[in-house]
Amino acid sequence: QIFVKTLMGKTITLEVELSDTIDNVKAKIQDKEGIPPDQQRLIFAGKQLEDGRTLSDYNIQKESTLHLVL
């Protein structure tokens, strides 16, 4: 699992595989929060994550926290 922190300070827990693409992750956030993926920007280690890449491409591990910017 990974964590996604919103600017409102809310933390969302997502069940993911490290082979999941950023697209997949955004879809899971949409399922939980109702935010359309095209409005989501995910940040990790100061970098904006690109849709076609996977979590492992960015060296994101289990229990990592991503930041969601709208």
Rank of each mutant, 00 (worst) to 15 (best):
Q1G: 03
I2W: 01
I2Q: 00
I2S: 00
F3R: 05
V4A: 02
V4I: 11
V4M: 03
T6V: 07
L7K: 15
M8D: 15
M8E: 15
G9E: 14
T11P: 11
T11H: 10
I12R: 05
T13K: 12
T13V: 14
T13D: 12
L14I: 05
L14E: 00
E15Q: 03
V16W: 08
E17L: 07
L18V: 04
S19E: 02
S19P: 04
S19A: 04
D20M: 06
T21N: 08
T21M: 01
T21S: 03
I22K: 00
I22Q: 08
I22P: 08
N24S: 09
N24M: 10
N24K: 03
V25Q: 01
V25C: 06
V25R: 00
K26P: 00
A27K: 07
A27W: 10
A27C: 09
I29E: 00
I29Q: 01
I29W: 00
I29S: 01
Q30K: 09
Q30D: 05
Q30F: 06
Q30A: 11
D31W: 01
D31V: 08
D31T: 05
K32I: 10
K32A: 14
K32C: 12
K32G: 13
E33R: 01
E33S: 01
I35S: 11
I35G: 10
P36E: 09
P36S: 08
P37L: 12
P37V: 11
D38K: 01
Q39W: 03
Q39A: 05
Q39H: 03
Q40L: 07
L42R: 00
L42C: 02
I43R: 13
I43H: 14
F44T: 06
F44D: 14
F44L: 13
A45N: 15
A45T: 09
A45K: 05
G46R: 04
G46M: 01
K47A: 14
K47H: 14
K47C: 15
K47V: 15
Q48W: 15
Q48A: 08
Q48E: 14
Q48F: 05
Q48D: 15
L49P: 01
D51S: 05
D51L: 05
D51M: 02
G52C: 06
R53T: 09
R53M: 02
T54E: 09
T54I: 05
L55W: 04
L55G: 00
L55Q: 00
S56T: 08
S56F: 03
S56L: 04
D57S: 13
D57C: 09
Y58K: 01
Y58F: 12
Y58E: 15
N59L: 10
N59Y: 06
I60L: 05
Q61H: 03
Q61K: 09
Q61R: 06
Q61I: 13
K62G: 13
K62L: 11
E63D: 11
S64F: 10
S64C: 08
S64T: 08
S64W: 06
S64Q: 11
S64M: 13
S64D: 15
T65Q: 12
T65L: 14
T65H: 11
T65D: 15
T65N: 13
L66D: 15
L66N: 15
H67R: 05
V69T: 07
V69C: 09
L70N: 15
L70Q: 15
L70D: 15
